[in-house]
């Protein structure tokens, strides 16, 4: 086997970075790309539904009035009115529109998840990169710390942090974010090791590329999908953890609508008003499912062919 075939084979296994040579080539390339994206999506209705759901949630968080004109804090009908065309999610124990409360709660619940992800991903990435890249005692120290953090069940660690920080949505989000650091650092570290030891990085180095070029042109493009997968997975677990803590009563004080607290608000009316727990809980479950589906698209089956 000659040296050039080895390098070519190595480069072939990495995503193509080469530019198309002519304008026609480019047009054909984009046309083919759109067609392949469409056929990729047509084969995955679940993924399409997940993307649509997330887009709707983001819209509801940014502009809740697009979805409902009803005030989430005002009584608008009789208490515990069953779902109907006027009130699609029914009303709660003091006659507030439950759909309006869920829609207006999106900003708080999604915002808290975003804060948790920001903390968990940024700190986790930095620690994982340091451990994987520097190796040696830094690696050993970071990974021992990760082992310790992972020995405490996530929800209990988050509860201890909530006791130290105090109650409220922001503190709950910080606690959940801090809790996710250890797992993220471990995943990022193995990702760094995988990329650092890959054949295409070796080939680029052997070809005389400077470290910065290797990092920007080769390591970064190949690390983006795993990172997106991690963010999607963190989103799901953050939504679950934050809504659990808010269900237990450590989040925003009433009457602020927050998804987990809405479910908890219906606990005393399970027999007479099923919608008060079932419908907000369904929104949480669908959101977690959508995040997990996105994460799966980024990991296993994420490559466009």
């Amino acid at each position: 086997m000659s040296e050039s075939t080895v390098v070519n084979a190595a480069l072939g296994s990495a995503p193509a970075h080469g530019r198309p040579e002519s304008a026609e080539d480019a047009a054909e390339h984009t046309g083919g790309r759109i067609a392949s994206v469409l056929s990729y999506l047509r084969a995955r209705p679940g993924l399409v539904a997940a993307v649509i759901w997330i887009v709707l949630l983001v819209l509801a968080a940014l502009a809740p009035t697009l979805f409902t004109g009803t005030d989430p804090l005002e009584s608008v009908a009789l208490p515990r009115t069953a779902p109907s065309a006027a009130h699609v999610f029914g009303t709660d124990d003091i006659g507030r529109d439950l759909f309006a409360r869920v829609v207006h709660g999106t900003r708080l619940s999604l915002g808290a998840a975003a804060l948790a992800i920001a903390i968990g991903v940024v700190v986790g990435t930095v620690l994982g990169l340091l451990a994987g890249y520097l190796g040696g005692w830094v690696d050993a120290a970071v990974m021992r710390m990760v082992d310790v953090l992972l020995s405490i069940p996530a929800i209990l660690l988050a509860l201890a942090l909530v006791v130290a920080l105090g109650f409220g949505t922001v503190n709950v989000a910080i606690a959940v974010g801090l809790t996710s650091i250890a797992g993220n650092a471990r995943i990022l570290r193995s990702e760094v090791l995988r990329v650092r030891n890959s054949t295409y990085v070796e080939a680029a180095r052997a070809g005389g590329a400077r470290p910065v070029r290797v990092l920007v042109r080769h390591v970064l493009p190949n690390s983006i999908t795993p990172l997106l997968a991690l963010i999607a997975l963190d989103f799901s677990s953050a939504i679950l953890a934050i809504s659990s803590l808010s269900f237990l009563g450590y989040g925003a004080p009433p009457p602020t609508p927050e998804w987990g607290a809405l479910v908890s608000g219906g606990r005393d009316f399970l027999a007479s008003a099923w919608w008060m727990t079932t419908l907000p809980g369904l929104v949480i479950a669908l959101t977690v499912l959508a995040g997990n589906r996105l994460s799966r698209a980024f990991t296993g089956e994420g490559t466009l062919r």
């Binding site: 799901s236 679950l240 809504s243 659990s244 269900f247 987990g260 479910v263 908890s264 219906g266 606990r267 399970l270 027999a271 099923w274 727990t277 079932t278 809980g281 369904l282 949480i284 479950a285 977690v288 499912l289 997990n292 589906r293 799966r296």
Partner: peptide
């Protein structure tokens, strides 16, 4: 995947609704 996505507080309340009420 469905089992890990369902919030357990919600699952518990659904079970009560079906099998207690």
């Amino acid at each position: 995947p469905l089992g890990v996505a369902i919030p357990s507080f919600w699952l518990g309340l659904l079970l009560i609704q079906f099998f207690s009420f």
